[in-house]
């Protein structure tokens, strides 16, 4: 192992990511090379400085605020149902109500349904009045007057 290899490997050994034989080789080189021995000492010192950085206490009530934020998020996620779907559904109900109401009103108070001529096409050959009806008698009587 030369000093360049040592420098590249040092971090991995300090981080516990090197294979055991790599760690052994690194130790052997550090013991025989003064500058690399100093380097590994410096890197360890930097690690200790970082590990010694303080951990601050989170502000009181942070958990409650996080959970409140989650509730707001959930409300926001389902809120569109209330903002969009409910008014839309209400509008559909109103329109349906108007339509049904109109039909009921027509059925109760409106003009009777008129049978369109097109619906009885093909019955033109029949007499307007049934043979024994009062209307037929009047028609025949009228014809007789004409004949006379």
């Amino acid at each position: 192992m030369d000093c360049n290899d040592f420098e590249k490997l040092a971090g991995r050994v300090l981080d516990g990511e090197a294979a055991p034989e790599e760690a052994t080789a690194l130790e052997a080189h550090a013991a025989s090379c003064e500058s690399c021995g100093v380097l590994i000492g410096d890197l360890s010192a930097l690690g200790r400085l970082h590990s010694g950085l303080p951990e601050l206490e989170p502000p009181a009530g942070l958990t409650d605020r996080i959970m409140a934020g989650i509730k707001r998020f959930e409300t926001g996620r389902t809120g569109w149902i209330w903002r969009v779907l409910v008014p839309a559904a209400a509008a559909v109900f109103v329109l349906l109500g108007i339509r049904i109401g109109t039909q009921i009103t027509d059925a109760w108070f409106g003009e009777p349904a008129v049978v369109q001529h097109s619906e009885v096409t093909g019955l033109e050959h029949l007499d307007v009045y049934p043979p024994d009806s009062f209307g037929k008698a009047i028609e025949l009587a009228a014809k007789g007057e004409d004949d006379e």
């Binding site: 950085l53 601050l56 206490e57 942070l62 958990t63 996080i66």
Partner: peptide, 28 residues
Amino acid sequence: YQREIYNYFIRSTGSIEDSEDMTQHCFV
């Protein structure tokens, strides 16, 4: 996890207020 995440943000923002906001944001 809030304590370590809060401190992770402290070390990346240097700000208590931002770290609190970001911790909330992270869990949401």
